[in-house]
Write a protein that binds this DNA or RNA. Structure first.
Length: 647
RNA sequence: GCGCCCGUAGCUCAGGUGGAAGAGCAUCGGCCUUCUAAGCCGACGGUCCCAGGUUCGAGUCCUGGCGGGCGUACCA
């Protein structure tokens, strides 16, 4: 193929435009969002119409007539208010397939980043309590954004920052001490502004397990310090293992105290002083952040001589810069948005660019259970933890839930829905489509043939022999995409070709939900294509037809689709299973434990029952349990609901 | 008061460089003798919060409202 079809279309249109006496009008081609609007569309007639004083549709007709036949274009039409829609022939629309197979698990990657370093800082939870769902959203977002950047040629560094000193850690230590004393029956209440969650008592119990009664009557600072260190270490460990269970790893954990111990905070004060933008007022030391667009000046050092949070924040970002990260993305909850202006202002005072660092601020996560909102509060001790959520719905579902919405949109996490209907979750649709393609390709490799009339026992054997003779050819590396003429095939092929553009856009906009939407759409096209060729429906449209050339082309399409789904899931940090098992819960069919070799009737019975009986009002029905258990290997919805209530 | 975010189908939400209104759930109706029905096909469902403006064209951009969320510390 000499030139891309788009170039030929554009050239033909530009010639036609010039003929109509409107040279210089830019011809732009765009991908219509809907398949029925063709492979490419142009708005040039509508731009031209007012200049020529003629109706746009008439101009469009005229343009088409003048453009004539275009190589690679099957047909063209005037549509809507005056769009020109071009439909490529099958060879052109399937032209991405060889490239997909060539690139394999790198298909979709790009090199916009050109190997530059970028830091993504996310989660950054303080060791004063367990990770909650807001941290979960951040973990999913930060990791997915880092992955997107890696896919587009950046070298991503994942960093977790935490405050391991200061007033809140003091209160944590005091809270642990109170709980510790309570173990011995002493009436020492947790401080009013301390941490009241159950986990504090657990820490105290663990502390006693480690140290016995040694600190029982020790009210010294050293005892408090021991508890502080113990609690921080334990919570830090809990965060790391929790994130690991969630599938997120960090390159570096950066403690706030390091900024003090290595003198960076002091250096930052000095450097800011030298800018002449600091002043003293009311006994405190201020920085003129208003010079850089902040709403008011900020205190750097309080009148009691201790620094505010603002100062180490600036020092920390100077450390990032000096470590070579001139591109930094901070993923934070929107409740931190007030700090972004002042931190950037402080950094500008030190000569950093105004857009450093970049922020992705996600809106809050609220959780509803039984139709009621649950409020998060570390101090009240009533909140839902990330670990609890992962235990309930699994890491994959939780991750996808957090990613499928724009970060700046409020996320309502309906626990009931996530529990009872998790198998209807889009992530299963995508993973299932992938597993389905794997099975199909497996059948293809075995030489299985479907279709009425061709089912003589010798047919598979014959194909197997041919396949063996021709080696890899059966896998379709040299298949002819022009044979993919059915609508479902062409729609799918076209969609697969757009994957790299979606990854690039998602990365540029720090928008993982774009990938989610793409995957769901692709999975839908895969399923439509698959169903259209289902043996019971249209065996002549199946990939497993007897005609070898057609079979090759369709199996190539399946391989390409599998590659795209697998890569897309990898971009989000999700698994691409080769096989998905349904597990029929023992409540159906009286304790029939069913695993891999399930009799088909069992599956169908459960599925039918599941559909026939919606969830009744008191609790989960057998039907909903059947659906829940499908998610695989986890407790039934009933027992999970109980554990949720207990948590 | 001021700042940021949100307002799209009954519900939860996607909507690219401004271009032809979408998905899932819910409801209703079809589709398993043969590749996994965790699926597919169809129907129903819209004042894209309101009012102006820019434009050949606005869910998208601009201005002003209305409604909701979050923030607005010498807290951490």
């Amino acid at each position: 193929m000499s030139a891309e079809p788009t170039e030929r279309i554009a050239a033909s249109l530009e010639r036609a435009v010039a003929e109509m006496g409107a040279a210089g009008v830019q011809v732009r081609l765009e991908r219509p969002r809907v398949g029925s609007h063709g492979d490419w569309a142009s708005n040039v007639a509508m731009v031209l119409a007012p200049k020529l004083g003629r109706p746009p549709r008439q101009v469009a007709e005229d343009l088409l007539n003048r453009a004539g036949e275009i190589e690679g274009v099957d047909r063209a039409e005037v549509a809507g208010p005056g769009f020109l829609n071009f439909f490529l022939d099958a060879g052109a629309s399937g032209s991405a397939l060889p490239r997909i197979l060539d690139m394999g698990d790198r298909y979709g990657s790009g090199d916009e980043g050109a190997g530059r370093a970028v830091m993504v800082e996310f989660v950054s939870a303080n060791p004063t309590g367990p990770l909650h769902l807001g941290h979960g959203r951040q973990a999913a977002l930060g990791d997915a954004i880092a992955r997107l950047l890696e896919w587009t040629g950046w070298k991503a560094h994942r960093e977790f920052y935490f405050n391991d000193a200061g007033g809140q850690i003091d209160r944590l230590a005091e809270s642990v001490r109170a709980r510790f004393q309570q173990i011995f029956g002493r009436d020492e209440p947790v401080p009013e502004n301390g941490y009241h969650g159950e986990y504090v008592a657990e820490i105290a119990a663990a502390f006693r397990e480690r140290h016995g009664d040694r600190y029982r009557d020790d009210r010294t600072e050293a005892a408090l310090e021991a508890m502080r260190a113990f609690a921080v270490a334990r919570l830090r460990q809990e965060h790391e293992t929790g994130l690991e269970a969630f599938g997120v790893r960090f390159d570096e954990y950066y403690p706030e105290t390091r900024l003090y111990s290595d003198g960076r905070v002091r250096e930052t004060i000095q450097a800011l002083d030298e800018t002449g933008l600091t002043y003293r007022q009311d006994g405190a030391c201020w920085l003129r952040t208003t010079r850089f667009g902040d709403q008011k000046d900020r205190v750097m050092v309080k009148s009691d001589g201790s620094p505010t949070y603002f100062l180490p924040d600036v020092a920390y970002h100077m450390s990032k810069w000096e470590r070579g990260f001139h591109h930094v993305i901070n993923v934070q909850g929107a409740d931190h948005h007030s700090t972004t202006d002042r931190v950037r202002a402080g950094l500008q005072a030190l000569g950093r660019p105004p857009e450093y660092p970049e922020y992705v601020l996600h809106q809050m996560v609220t959780v509803e259970r039984d139709g009621q909102e649950i409020r998060f509060s570390k101090r009240a001790g009533s909140y839902t933890t990330l670990a609890g959520l992962v235990a309930e719905v699994g890491a994959e579902v939780a991750r996808y839930f957090f990613l499928m919405r724009r970060p700046e949109a409020h996320l309502v996490f309906d626990l009931d829905l996530a529990l009872d209907q998790s198998e209807k979750n889009p992530v299963y649709k995508v993973q299932y489509a992938h597993a389905r393609l794997c099975q199909l390709l497996d059948q293809g490799a075995k030489g299985v043939v479907v279709g009425r009339g061709t089912q003589s026992p010798s047919a598979p054997r014959r194909l197997l022999d041919q396949g063996a003779k021709k080696g890899r050819d059966l896998s379709g590396a040299r298949a002819d995409p022009r044979l993919l003429t059915a609508a479902a095939e062409r729609d799918l092929a076209r969609q697969l070709g757009e994957f790299p553009a979606f990854v690039e856009r998602a990365a540029a906009n720090r928008a993982p939900q774009v990938v989610c939407a793409y995957l769901e759409q692709t999975a839908g096209l895969v399923n439509s294509w698959y169903q259209a060729g289902h043996p019971s429906r249209g065996p002549e449209l199946s990939a497993l037809v007897g005609n070898e050339a057609l079979r090759n082309a369709r199996l190539t399409l399946a391989r390409a689709a599998r590659t795209v789904l697998r890569n897309g899931l990898a971009v989000l940090g999700l698994q691409a299973p080769k096989r998905m098992h349904r597990e029929v819960p023992d409540v159906v069919g009286g304790g029939v434990g069913v695993g891999q070799g399930v009799p088909a009737e069992g599956i169908v019975a459960a599925a039918v029952e599941g559909r026939a009986r919606p969830v009744a009002d008191g609790g989960p029905s057998a039907a909903s349990r059947a659906r829940s258990a499908v998610a695989g290997g986890r407790p039934s919805a009933a027992s999970r609901a109980q554990s949720a209530a207990a948590g």
